[in-house]
């Protein structure tokens, strides 16, 4: 049962809440206690944009048990507008549709359950922007 560990990350996983260093302006996701850019310990809350681009990706064929039913699935590194990067799945696509620099946006999805009886853990995934 992961409730305590899970709930702590909810502001980031659900709402992309980041910390912006008041010293140098660097955005930290997740927020930190000390800025690795300038050493400042003062931050203000910032919400990251949901739009970004895909930097690299892989197709996972061999997965941990919590993810094994969903193979093959795509995991990539996304750079959000404004420069923050994160690792997440790229859902609702064929790997053939992907390209470095492809525009993506983050959506709210189920990520995993540690077992069938455990809590459902939600978070962000990317999907291709298909305007």
């Amino acid at each position: 049962m992961k409730s305590a560990q899970y709930i702590r990350e909810v502001p980031q996983r659900y709402r992309l809440e980041a910390g912006k260093c008041t010293g140098c302006g660097k955005l930290h996701f997740p927020p930190r206690l000390v800025c690795d850019g300038c050493g400042s310990r003062e931050f203000e809350a910032a919400t990251l944009p949901r739009q970004g681009t895909l930097l690299t990706w892989t197709v996972i064929h061999a997965a941990p048990p919590q993810f094994s039913l969903e193979t093959p699935y795509v995991v990539g590194i996304v750079e959000l507008d404004g420069g923050v990067r994160l690792t997440c799945q790229v859902a609702d696509c064929d790997p053939e549709e992907l390209a470095v620099g492809a525009p993506v946006e983050l959506v709210f999805r189920r990520i995993k359950e540690d077992n069938a009886a455990d809590i459902i853990q939600y978070g962000y995934k990317a999907v291709l922007r298909r305007e």
């Binding site: 709210f108 999805r109 189920r110 995934k125």
Partner: peptide, 12 residues
């Protein structure tokens, strides 16, 4: 999708 349910649909 395997990662969708009533909650994720409602959020979208």
């Amino acid at each position: 999708g395997m990662d969708e349910d009533t909650i994720t649909i409602s959020v979208a």
